[in-house]
């Protein structure tokens, strides 16, 4: 695919090849390969426990793979840490959001990327920017000085997304960004993803259980099954019904085998 003569194709920003990862006796991923082009939105689906989150955590440097290659912007890299991946422009919205309840909204938004006027935190700058980012995103939060513990699930999600979006990420990994959201808040996040796509600067991998929502925003869908990618189609070539069938068929097959 890389050797193709087609020059109008956007370049690949990320490619993972033959990634394997086990935790003790459990093989989470056996052989995963996928690619992501510049400005593309890739939907990653799969049943619970298929290893989607593990894959995301390998791409963002949180876990180190047992085998396989990661290629970022054409260069093979060994991601040593989350910070390292971040320095290459890879940023993540985790399923658990990675928010600290005891901290304010703006401190969470700038967690580990604080604006510092050495040796002190520049709280005023962070407050101002946090306010502006949230306004830009259309997220309604009374005060950026509120403790995150006081916010609703959707607001928390929005903060986690805003945090990654505004970190100048080139590759954004969204692990179930719609999980805790109401319909309105979910639409807000999808709009945001669409905005980012239109700008064409950011490439996104999005994990979601709601296939209709995934298909709304993504260019391509990959199915992760049995520790590997078993399905790769463009949006136009697939449908919610087909995706649902794929996942359910696997479950049925298991059940008939077992029972």
């Amino acid at each position: 695919m890389t050797g193709g003569p087609n020059v109008t194709e956007p370049p690949e920003v990320l490619r993972v090849e033959h990634i394997a990862k086990r935790f003790g006796a459990v093989e989470a991923l056996s052989d995963v390969s996928l690619y992501l082009k510049k400005g593309e939105v890739l939907g990653l689906i799969g049943d619970n426990g298929a290893g989607k989150s593990t894959l995301i955590k390998i791409i963002c440097g949180f876990h180190q793979p047992d085998a396989g290659k990661i290629i970022v912007n054409g260069e093979e890299v060994t991601l040593k840490s989350v910070d390292h991946a971040r320095s290459l422009g890879i940023d993540t919205v985790y399923q658990d959001l990675a928010l600290v309840n005891e901290l304010t909204v703006y401190h969470n938004m700038f967690l580990n990327r604080e604006v510092v006027r050495w040796p002190l935190l520049n709280n005023r700058a962070m407050r101002k920017r946090a306010r502006q980012y949230l306004d830009d995103m259309g997220v309604r939060i009374q005060s950026v000085e509120a403790e995150v513990a006081k916010l609703s699930g959707g607001q928390r999600q929005a903060i986690a997304v805003a945090r990654s979006v505004y970190s100048d990420a080139k590759i954004l990994l969204l692990d179930e960004p719609l999980a805790a959201m109401g319909a309105k808040e979910g639409a807000l996040i999808l709009d945001l993803v669409r905005d980012l796509k239109d700008r064409g600067e950011v490439s996104i991998i999005i994990i979601a259980h709601n296939y209709a929502q995934v298909l709304e925003v993504c260019d391509r869908v990959n199915l992760l099954q049995h520790g590997g990618i078993t399905y790769d189609k463009r949006r136009a070539e697939t449908s919610v019904a087909e995706l649902t069938d794929l996942v359910v068929a696997e479950y049925r097959a298991h059940r008939t085998k077992g029972g």
Binding site: F62, S81, L97, L103, H107, N123
Partner: peptide
């Protein structure tokens, strides 16, 4: 209350996994 060290100390105690995921 006013430095990164303090903020990260709170983050580590408040949400250890989250702090690690944030790269702290």
């Amino acid at each position: 209350t006013r430095t990164r060290w303090g903020l990260h100390t709170i983050a580590v105690g408040g949400n250890l996994l989250g702090a690690r995921e944030a790269g702290i």
